[in-house]
C-alpha cells in the first residue's frame, strides 16, 4: 500500500515493469530498541534500470534504512524488496549474501577499503569472494575511468580521500552489479573532490547504463542525480524530477526553525 505521492516514470512507486532494477513494495522496518521506532513506514518505490536516483531527507527520516533494506543488507519487517527479478527480502542470510555479492555494489561515505590490501586487491576482492572470473577488460576499463592506473600497488592508507572513494566506486562496479548503492559518497570529501566523485558516478550511469541509488543530505550531490526522493518520518514525502539545487535546498529546510540538521 503506497503512502507517497503517485509518480510517473522514470522513478515510480511499485512499478512492476521488466526494466525495473530495484523495487520496494509496501516496505516497513520497525526497530525495537527501547521502544518501537518505525524507521520505514510502508514505502513503495521502483527504480528503473539506468536511473541515477538520489534519496534525501533529514537525519532520522529513514533514508539510510531505506538504502540498507533496498540493498539487501537488512530485511524489512513487512513488505517485499526485489532486485532485478529476485525477491531479496525472502532470501535467508547466506543466499542473500551471495546474491548481494553477485548483484549489488556499495559505495560508502567512509570508503571502507580493506586497509591490508592493495588498491588492485581491493577492487577485485568482491570477485574473489564470489569465486567469479575476473573480467580483465572491464576491470581495466574501470581502473582507467577512475584514474587509478598508477595507484594499483598502493595501500589505501597512502591515498587521498577522493582517490579512495574512486577505488570504492571501481570496486562496486567490478562485478557488473544490477545496482550500486551509495551512502553519502561525498560526505567525507571537500566540495571539489566530491564533485569529481559525483561526476564519475554520473558517467558510469550515462556511459554504461549503471543503476545507482545514492543517499545524501547534500542538495549539491542530489542535483547530480536524475531524480530525487525526499524522505520524512519513514515515508516518501515527495519525488522531484531533475530538480535544481535551490529546490533541493528547500527540501532540507527544517520544519521547526530551531532544529539544526545533525550531520554524521
Amino acid at each position: 500500500m503506497s503512502t507517497g505521492p503517485t509518480l510517473r516514470a522514470p522513478v515510480q512507486q511499485a512499478d512492476r515493469g521488466p526494466d525495473v532494477a530495484v523495487r520496494l513494495d509496501s516496505v516497513s522496518k520497525v526497530f525495537r530498541r527501547g521502544g518501537e521506532v518505525r524507521a520505514l513506514d510502508g514505502v513503495s518505490l521502483s527504480v528503473p534500470r539506468g536511473a541515477f536516483l538520489a534519496v534525501m531527507g533529514r537525519s532520522g527520516s529513514g533514508k539510510s534504512t531505506l538504502l540498507h533494506v533496498a540493498a539487501g543488507l537488512d530485511v524489512p519487517s513487512s513488505g517485499s524488496v526485489w532486485i532485478g527479478g529476485t525477491e531479496v527480502s525472502r532470501l535467508r542470510e547466506t543466499p542473500r549474501t551471495r546474491f548481494r555479492r553477485d548483484r549489488v555494489g556499495f559505495v560508502f561515505q567512509a570508503y571502507n577499503l580493506v586497509p591490508s590490501l592493495t588498491i588492485e586487491e581491493n577492487i577485485t576482492l568482491p570477485l574473489r569472494l564470489a569465486g567469479a572470473n575476473l573480467d580483465r577488460a572491464w576491470v581495466g576499463t574501470l581502473v582507467e575511468r577512475t584514474g587509478l592506473v598508477d595507484l594499483l600497488r598502493r595501500l589505501p592508507g597512502e591515498l587521498s580521500g577522493g582517490q579512495q572513494q574512486r577505488v570504492a566506486i571501481a570496486r562496486a562496479l567490478a562485478p557488473r552489479p544490477a545496482v550500486v548503492f551509495a551512502d553519502e559518497p561525498t560526505g567525507a570529501l571537500d566540495l571539489a573532490t566530491g564533485q569529481g566523485v559525483l561526476g564519475l558516478l554520473r558517467e558510469m550511469v550515462s556511459d554504461y547504463g549503471q543503476t545507482v541509488v545514492m543517499v545524501t543530505h547534500d542538495p549539491v550531490a542530489a542535483a547530480s542525480a536524475h531524480d530525487t526522493v525526499v524522505m520524512a518520518d519513514g515515508r516518501i514525502r515527495e519525488v522531484l524530477r531533475a530538480p535544481d539545487v535551490e529546490v533541493l535546498a528547500d527540501q532540507r529546510r527544517p520544519p521547526e526553525p530551531h532544529t539544526v540538521g545533525a550531520h554524521r
Binding site: 549474501t97 551471495r98 555479492r101 569472494l129
Partner: peptide, 11 residues
C-alpha cells in the same frame, strides 16, 4: 566490511 563485500560467514 568484508560481509558487505559479499564474504559469507563460512569464508
Amino acid at each position: 566490511l568484508l560481509e558487505s563485500l559479499g564474504a559469507t560467514h563460512g569464508q
